[in-house]
C-alpha cells in the first residue's frame, strides 16, 4: 500500500490522525497533514483505509496492489 496526501486539499480536520495516528500527523503551525509513513505495514491497512475514507477534504489517496 502506498499513501499519497494532498496538502493543498487538506482542511486540517485531523480526522486521519484520529483514525491512524501512526501514519498521519498534523503540522503544528497550520494543521496541514503530515505523512509519517508512506508505505505502512499491513497492520495499519484497515486504519489507513478508514482515514482515507473519512477525510472530509478527500486529501488522502491510496494505491493498493490488487
Amino acid at each position: 500500500m502506498k499513501v499519497t496526501v494532498y496538502e493543498d486539499k487538506c482542511c486540517g480536520a485531523g480526522s486521519c490522525v484520529m483514525a491512524a495516528p501512526d501514519v498521519f500527523d498534523q503540522r503544528d503551525e497550520d494543521g496541514i497533514v503530515v505523512l509519517l509513513e508512506e508505505s505502512p505495514g499491513e497492520d495499519q491497512f484497515d486504519a489507513v483505509r478508514e482515514a482515507a475514507s473519512i477525510c472530509p477534504a478527500l486529501a488522502i489517496e491510496l494505491s493498493e496492489a490488487k
Binding site: G12, A13, G14, M18, Q26, D28, G31
Partner: peptide, 9 residues
C-alpha cells in the same frame, strides 16, 4: 480553534 487546527483537535 482560530488558526490552530492541530491544537484545537
Amino acid at each position: 480553534g482560530w488558526n490552530m487546527p492541530k491544537q484545537a483537535r
